[in-house]
Simulated scan of single mutants.
Amino acid sequence: MSNKTAALGADIAIGVAGPLLVLVLWEALVRGLAVPTYVLPAPSAIAAQVVTDLPLLLGGLGVTLGEAAAGYAIGAAIALALACLFVLAPVLERILLPVLVALNSVPVVAFAPVALLWFGMGPASKIAMVTLAVGFAVFVNAHHGLRAVDESAANLLRSFGAGPLRQMVLLRVPAALPSIMNGLRVAVVRSMIIAIVAEMIGAYKGLGWTIFEATQQVDFLRVWAAIAVASAASMAVYGVVNWLDRRLVFWR
């Protein structure tokens, strides 16, 4: 077995051991202290509820993942394009950057009424909110990475006749990949959170709607089951982005 395979196995083992330890302690404390289910259910009770409500939860998960993925892709694409544009055209950066900062100085949830008014109760309003939340996280990291290049390397390319666009492709984007991937990792978690919160504010389906509906019905086990499914899905997607990070930024 190669060193890389052994290191990957060790990372997976450590990553699994932490959550398992938390679940074991959680189960023991809830049972030992006889905590009521409506206050904090045991992990075993939550798992049983997940099995019982699996068709409902999987249907809601499909809707939420679709909204989060669409908003994630759109937000990341816009953010990367803006970051490159600002580096290539500093005048636009001076004009538009204050606008972006002003938009993101307000919690994304505050825009929920506007999003619902403009795009309705369907998936479009959730995608718009996820796009806004994801975009700034990716933009900040990408913009920093594109600017933090070795100036001597940029001067060398310039001496060979490379213009700003060619420098962007050959130097700035590859050098910024670690920062870009950091932004994409952070954005994964934000996309799921915003999609679920947006569904709780106004939707017809999705995990957020399931949580809201179960809360209205005082069915706290179903609330925790939906939270558990959402957490598992977020961790899985986060793992995929981490894998892509290892593949694309192999020198780090």
Score class of each variant (00 low, 15 high):
Leu58Thr: 11
Ala162Thr: 01
Met121Pro: 12
Ala162Asn: 06
Ile201Cys: 06
Ala81Tyr: 13
Leu61Phe: 14
Lys205Cys: 13
Ser234Asp: 08
Ser234Ile: 02
Leu132Gln: 09
Ser234Trp: 07
Phe119Trp: 12
Arg185Val: 12
Phe212Ala: 10
Leu57Lys: 04
Ile180Asp: 00
Ala47Cys: 11
Val22Gly: 05
Val87Ile: 03
Ser191Ile: 07
Ile211Met: 06
Val108Ser: 13
Ala13Pro: 13
Val149Trp: 00
Leu61Val: 08
Arg172Cys: 05
Arg158Asn: 09
Ala6Met: 14
Leu82His: 00
Arg94Thr: 06
Ser2His: 15
Ala42Arg: 11
Ala148Gly: 02
Gly15Tyr: 12
Leu177Thr: 01
Phe160Ser: 08
Ala137Pro: 05
Asn141Val: 00
Gly183Val: 05
Gly75Lys: 00
Val91Met: 00
Leu21Asp: 02
Gly122Phe: 09
Lys126Cys: 13
Ala7Asn: 15
Trp243Thr: 04
Val114Ala: 14
Asp11Val: 15
Ile211Val: 03
Arg94Asn: 04
Ile14Ala: 11
Val241Ile: 01
Leu85Cys: 08
Arg172Glu: 05
Ala115Gln: 01
Ala133Gln: 10
Val108Lys: 05
Pro98Ser: 04
Ser159Lys: 12
Ala195Glu: 10
Leu82Val: 01
Arg246Phe: 03
Ala81Ser: 14
Val63Leu: 15
Ala198Thr: 11
Ala198Ser: 15
Leu20Thr: 12
Val223Thr: 00
Val189His: 03
Pro107Tyr: 14
Glu27Ala: 07
Met121Phe: 15
